[in-house]
Write a protein that binds this DNA or RNA. Structure first.
Lengths: 208, 208
DNA sequence: CCAAAAGTGTTCTGACTACACCCATGC
DNA sequence: GCATGGGTGTAGTCAGAACACTTTTGG
């Protein structure tokens, strides 16, 4: 009986908001999918454990990662309280573990089977928080490569909000309010034509 | 070593945002002031423990009470993680415990001596969250009696925000956006003259 | 030639800001 | 009569929403 940490890791994968789940290879809930998590190591902080879990599963460290909520009664008899975190990663930077057992995989949050340990509660809470944070912060910086076109960025917003966005209004907002800036360079491989590339003016979490 | 719960209980007391503190009567940190808190009882939920603590200290139960953040390393050797909550109460409804030992008392958050267990960190975090929640929710319902004048309500907003507010703009906003409604009745004892009384349209936490 | 993505302006509306004076009552 | 608190209107600014077409390139 001790505190456990669970991390909700989001990415956007061809237009779908997706979450990293792990197939349980042991009881309880063997064979079901669950959020990555576990107990704190000796002398480890909560943030430290979350960072470690994220790095283990995706190989990434320098991304948006924030405490979400602390649950009890999540159905795992081993933990009395579960401190949850959520993280946002750019799919292109991740290298998932490829173990056959405890296999991690991305799942669209739209089409989701029931999860182990009431993890749906955690996931719903995280999705809501992500949507509301997207409205007034620059958190999306962590879901995109360092340079990107505004259309890419708009796709990310649409995937999270679940509805289409007006292109011109979107551009005005993010450029006009200084969330992103042009990054001079204008070539991109495989695109339908040359395009302006942008970068976030800040690469840290920021409340606008 | 187990989870503990701490509750930041705010009120507004003659124009000052104030917090309920308890004078510690035993080591560690004997004689210093600390936020009310303690360990979970057997089979108690986190929310349950927070409700119990709030009721113990103030006698109130049906108010705004929400989980805030989970800290570690707060300096109390007894708890590995501390799950904090914050609550908003109407001073008029509270009846503080009057024990001589472990005495509870209201302290303005402006003029505050150092607290036990790094409780300043918790209090700063709670103050910030309160300010930001006040912008886009009706949380103030819990700081006022069920019927009140708009001037009373404005005083509460000013105490929390720490700056004066334009009276006419304030009225337009809260009435126009349907946060409060007139409650017909127009008499009030001890007031300088008859006045319109208002009530919140909803008495539950609500995101606008 | 067709599909896919980049780029671009105007108009309307609703919300927020700033700002100053009168009235009734209790003391 | 004065201090306290209740009550009221206007004009300016800014952000957000709605709205459609052209260009280029790759396949």
């Amino acid at each position: 009986m001790a505190a456990a940490v669970v991390v909700v890791i989001f990415t956007v994968r061809d237009g779908q908001l997706s979450v990293l789940l792990i197939e349980r290879a042991a009881a309880p809930c063997r064979g079901q999918w669950a959020l990555p998590g576990g107990h704190l190591l000796k002398d480890e902080t909560l943030d430290g454990a979350a960072i470690r879990k994220l790095a283990n599963e995706t190989g990434i460290t320098d991304v948006f990662l924030e405490q979400l909520y602390t649950f009890d009664r999540l159905g795992d008899g081993h933990a009395d309280v579960v401190v949850t975190y959520f993280a946002l990663v750019d799919l292109m930077r991740t290298r998932l573990r490829s173990d056959l057992e405890w296999r991690p995989a991305w799942h669209s949050v739209r089409t989701l089977q029931p999860l182990a340990f009431n993890n749906e509660r955690v996931l719903d809470y995280a999705s809501g928080r992500l949507r509301s944070k997207l409205q007034y912060t620059n958190v999306a910086y962590s879901l995109l490569p360092s340079r990107f076109t505004l259309t890419q960025m708009q796709r990310v917003y649409e995937a999270i909000m679940g509805e289409p966005v007006d292109k011109r209004n979107f551009r005005r907002r993010v450029v006009g309010l200084g969330i992103v800036r042009e990054t001079g360079t204008t070539l991109k491989q495989g695109a339908s034509r040359p395009a302006m590339l942008y970068e976030f003016t800040r690469h840290e979490p920021m409340t606008l």
